[in-house]
């Protein structure tokens, strides 16, 4: 394993490069479509009046509360997306049953751990999506995200040994890989595939205090 893999992933690009004009426009259009969809769903009927009024409300909202810039270099891969959602839903069921079982199991105090997982693709979007998905899949809860190094700090429940902790860390990387396969750019995909599982950063090894 080469030394590059020992260090936490440096930002693959400046985390927030100034957006180009077309990227800004695309973000605005995405936000508009999202807001109008929510508006129409709230009213429950698709009519011209709803759509037009939704557009007005969306325009006012975006003017008053501008969204932070999001860099999105990738594109949507339908197959990766499907695979991600299928796995996500089954994980959600497994997670719920697992926590329910831990709760109802008599005389058992679950042990847990807090681990640092440096992401391989350090973009705001990837950090956010991975953190959101992580909280809903078995055993994990996001505690803190360090944007500078792209590191997620994850609370893991129901682990009993260091081996299980390392196994869990690999699970987090698998989840990140599924997200990148669903919406990543070719560059990010290559990065995820070549790095595989990075070693845990040595200076973050912490004994329980």
């Amino acid at each position: 394993m080469n030394p590059d893999q020992m260090t936490p992933a440096p930002p693959t690009e400046p985390p927030n490069p100034p957006l180009t004009r077309s990227a800004r426009q695309r973000n605005q259009i995405t936000a508009m479509v999202g807001l109008v969809t929510v508006w129409v769903l709230l009213w429950g009927t698709l009519s011209w009046a709803n759509v037009i009024f939704g557009l007005v409300v969306a325009a006012i909202l975006l003017a008053v509360f501008p969204l932070p810039p999001v860099t999105f270099a990738g594109r949507i891969h339908p197959i990766g997306m499907l695979r991600f959602w299928r796995r996500f839903l089954s994980d959600l069921v497994v997670a719920s049953v697992q926590v329910a079982w831990l709760a109802l199991r008599p005389r058992h105090v679950p042990r847990s751990a807090i681990i640092a997982v440096p992401m391989r693709v350090n973009t705001d979007l990837n950090l956010t999506l991975t953190a959101e998905a992580l909280t809903l899949v078995p055993g994990s809860l996001i505690l803190e995200a360090d944007r500078a190094t792209g590191t997620l700090f994850v609370h893991v429940i129901g682990v009993n040994s260091r081996d299980e902790v390392e196994q869990f860390r690999r699970g987090v990387y698998d989840l990140e890989a599924r997200i990148v396969e669903a919406i990543g750019s070719p560059d990010e995909l290559r990065r995820v595939r070549t790095i595989g599982y990075p070693n845990p950063p040595a200076d973050l090894e912490g004994e329980p205090t």
Binding site: S112, D146, V165, E205, E207, T209
Partner: peptide, 20 residues
Amino acid sequence: GYPHEEIRTDLLLTDELAAH
């Protein structure tokens, strides 16, 4: 709630956030 006594550190196998 993280750096707080509400959290049972004796039940933690490892705590890499504290080091960070």
